[in-house]
């Protein structure tokens, strides 16, 4: 299978993951969205040297992965291109902050190294939490939840259409790549001399298809509101999940759990 076709399949697998059945899947999307946003804010709020405090935050997404029967491996595999980029954010910290912060055995560790790892972990944890959200909630439900949280309709519609058009664009790339390769035997990819026209054509074709797709939505009553993905009112167990999750996140943030565990182990 071509790389682009494989990417299309992988992309569409996310919809399948969101359709499965588990405790996390059955929680109201508004609750899941609020928890994810809270988790990201709390994770980001850790200090740049607070590596030990931050590490405990991994427990929450890992627990959700387990409960929702979602593979952590699948998360890292699907995000294999994004994760290195996220990790690269703090890569220059060791060069900028050389002051020794702690010793591991006899090895001095600078503040820059610690802050680099902290940044990396923050990014990875946030990605994991976002992945669990997307793997357990359909994109339409996420959009409906955003609307419920009063995010402007224009912005949410833009988000939904971008998501829909990604697969449209990938399909067009696949067709165009096939057409190119059939007339360019022996080439490994699209030659850079053809990039301009290739991208131009891709844009035009994607626009045509995107317009058809949007027409199809409008013809079936879509007016920017996510009525078709209307969410049920929050039930008792949604509230329970919400408060339990927020409580756990707060516990991780405001208590020195890592230190307590460390002392217990020692």
């Amino acid at each position: 299978m071509k790389r682009i076709d494989h990417a299309i399949v992988e992309f569409k697998e996310m919809d399948e993951m969101a359709k499965r059945d588990s405790l996390v899947h059955s929680v109201n999307p508004v609750v899941k969205l609020i928890i994810t946003i809270a988790y990201i804010f709390v994770t980001v709020s850790f200090g740049k040297y607070d590596l030990s405090g931050l590490i405990i935050m991994c427990l929450y997404p890992i627990a959700l992965f387990e409960i929702s029967d979602t593979s952590i491996g699948a998360c890292f595999y699907k995000l294999r291109i994004v994760i290195p980029l996220v990790c690269a954010v703090g890569i220059f910290n060791p060069f900028l902050d050389k002051e020794t912060l702690l010793y591991v055995g006899n090895v001095a560790v600078s503040g820059g190294v610690v802050s680099m790892f902290t940044l990396m972990l923050k990014g990875v944890f946030c990605i994991m939490a976002s992945f669990v959200l997307v793997a357990t909630t359909s994109f339409d439900e996420i959009c409906a939840a955003l609307r419920r949280l009063h995010i402007p309709g224009f912005f949410v519609t833009l988000l939904l259409l971008t998501y829909r058009y990604i697969s449209v664009m990938m399909e067009e790339v696949s067709v165009m790549t096939d057409a190119y390769m059939l007339r360019a035997p022996g080439q490994k990819g699209v030659h850079f001399s053809a990039w301009g026209s290739f991208l131009g054509q891709l844009l035009l074709r994607s626009m045509d298809r995107a317009e058809e797709l949007y027409s199809s939505m409008r013809l079936r009553g879509f007016n920017g509101e996510f009525i078709y993905a209307s969410l049920d009112p929050l039930k008792g167990r949604d509230y329970a999940f919400l408060f339990a999750s927020l409580g756990i996140i707060a516990l991780f943030r405001f208590t020195e759990l890592t230190a307590i565990i460390g002392q217990l182990v020692m």
Binding site: D15, E16, R164, L213, S216, M217, G221, I227, A229, S230
Partner: peptide, 18 residues
Amino acid sequence: NQMFMPTVLDDMMFGLCN
């Protein structure tokens, strides 16, 4: 271009719910 939702059921319900 017409079937843009994940499943056939979702697609058929899209217009009705709208």
